[in-house]
Design a binder for these strands. Structure first.
Lengths: 183, 183
DNA sequence: CAAGATTGACCATTCAATCTTT
DNA sequence: AAAGATTGAATGGTCAATCTTG
């Protein structure tokens, strides 16, 4: 019965704010996470002249059979929008790190292929990547914490189903529309 | 023996790759982290028409005495470069969410001040922010895991001293970059 | 029309240069 | 000159529209 007085927001717990321990967890988490990714991005850029996003593209390609992957599949594995990937691969192609080919079977499809130069660039960047990870993530944690972090990440990931590239369509209403509690 | 374990980019362990459990930890962690931040960014943008970065600026300002903070201090708390903050506050000022004033005491300095409209925008965005955090981070974890995550984040943060805005200069060793010949 | 992918316009961030005040 | 902050060019990302093939 109900009815919350003001409402608007959305759930059975309309907008209960975070309690202090939750706040602390969140702030510490964002700060740590950003510090880590920023360091990674910065070192990769300065020492290997490559943004993290590009490194990851080359990495995933390097692990694929024939170092080849369909654009869509590559996007999925990277959890990237297809637009972003397209732009990025365009730049990687200009740098001769990747090349693209259309599929003979279905000419709508395209594959990205890691070039020799691309593999070399990846190899050059890898030590930097590993070093940052060790220094800023793995070394500061105990073995147990690494295990805990994996489980925690897994739980977050499972609760957060990959959104399809085409942005979640929320129909036309431009209003902050309350959604069903369990979506 | 000139081993300098501090400055050497990757001399100690030239390029020991990650072992499988480390790899798994890293991949799961990045995927979870990105999924979370992407969801946050997307929902904030679509439901409150505000990028996460701006939300955070308003939030930090709102917690300051007189909702006022020096630009430099604001940048430090947000772990943002001063350039980035300057641009962002410029846009927030255009949106009338923040206003700037010079200090009378030291006219080089400037403060950012949250406006009434800015406070309102923050209040409107907060429920979305909280909802995403609960759904994608807090709810999926046990209480114990939240505690673990806080400790883990703390450890990462402590190992990762905030770099000063002006890019960390690593000019000590003009090291021969293993780079490809074409650039 | 739908699927796969790309394009273009626009916004945010970075890096280096600059401006002002101490 | 150094400290505090801003600016502009260049780069990467997002969103919506488009192109092409099935």
């Amino acid at each position: 019965v109900t009815t919350d007085p003001r409402t608007a927001a959305s759930e059975d717990q309309p907008s209960r704010l975070l309690d202090p321990s939750e706040q602390k967890a969140w702030r510490t988490f964002t700060d740590a996470t950003r510090g880590l990714f920023d360091a990674l991005e910065r070192r990769l850029q300065s020492d290997a002249d490559m943004p993290l996003a590009y490194y990851e593209i080359l990495l995933v390609l390097s692990e694929a059979p024939d170092q080849t992957l369909r654009m869509g599949e590559l996007a999925r594995r990277l959890r990237s929008s297809s637009s972003r990937l397209s732009h990025a691969v365009g730049r990687l192609e200009a740098a001769d790190h990747v090349r693209r080919e259309h599929l003979p079977s279905d000419r709508r499809g395209a594959v990205a292929i890691l070039t020799t130069a691309g593999a070399a660039a990846l190899a050059a960047a890898t030590p930097v990547h590993v070093e940052v990870l060790r220094r800023h993530l793995l070394d500061p944690l105990t073995r147990e914490q690494v295990t805990q972090l994996t489980a925690i990440s897994r739980a977050i990931l499972d609760a957060n189903p990959t959104p399809p590239h085409p942005r979640r369509r929320r129909d036309d209403h431009p209003l902050p529309q309350p959604r069903d509690p369990d979506e």
